[in-house]
Simulated scan of single mutants.
Amino acid sequence: MARSAKQLTDTALKKVKAEDKDLILSDGNGLQVKVRKSGSKLWNFNYYHPITKKRINMGLGKYPDISIVNARKLAQEARELVALGTDPKEHRDETLAFKRAQEELTLNKVALEWFEVKKQSLTKDYGEDIWR
């Protein structure tokens, strides 16, 4: 029978000090805090990949920046994706890539890049006229 982990508290996380090696504290349901030698505290979600069935750690962020409540929400969302057969790490990467592509490929940005290339060969008045 698996051991049940006692849920972490904000006070307990603040009191944890760095040791000579990395320390892993479990909150349960795959959510962990890794206390590094340097003193940083990082949230991890530990899960089995839905296809390969290998154990994977997915970083969720740094402790004070991501609160316990938010880390639990992120872990719950990741668990739901695993239950649906989707790798949460790949899903997150695809979502970020899509957002980046939307920001980078706007008409204004493409026009600015084109204008920067072309304005070297144009007169100032003609360049301003084209940009308008």
Rank of each mutant, 00 (worst) to 15 (best):
M1R: 09
A2F: 09
R3H: 11
S4T: 10
S4V: 12
S4E: 11
S4Q: 12
S4A: 09
A5W: 03
A5D: 10
K6I: 09
Q7P: 11
Q7M: 08
L8H: 02
L8V: 02
L8Q: 00
T9S: 15
T9R: 04
A12L: 14
E19M: 10
E19D: 13
D22N: 13
I24H: 13
I24D: 13
I24K: 15
S26K: 05
D27A: 05
Q32L: 15
V33E: 00
R36N: 12
R36H: 14
K37G: 10
K37F: 04
S38Q: 05
S38I: 02
G39S: 13
S40E: 14
S40D: 15
S40P: 06
L42K: 02
L42C: 09
L42T: 09
F45E: 03
Y48Q: 07
Y48G: 00
I51R: 12
K53N: 13
K54Y: 03
K54W: 04
K54R: 14
R55T: 05
M58I: 09
G61D: 03
Y63D: 01
Y63E: 00
Y63N: 02
D65L: 15
V69D: 09
R72C: 08
K73M: 08
A75I: 04
E77T: 10
E77D: 14
E77Y: 01
E77A: 14
A78V: 03
L81E: 07
G85V: 02
E90S: 12
E90I: 13
R92G: 02
L96Y: 07
A97Q: 11
A97C: 06
A97E: 10
R100N: 11
R100I: 07
A101N: 12
Q102E: 15
Q102K: 15
E103V: 06
E103S: 08
E103D: 07
E104H: 06
L105R: 11
L105C: 08
K109P: 03
K109L: 13
V110R: 05
V110Y: 00
E113F: 06
E113H: 08
E116T: 11
V117C: 07
K119W: 01
K119D: 03
K119I: 04
Q120I: 11
T123I: 01
T123M: 05
K124I: 09
K124A: 08
D125M: 08
G127V: 00
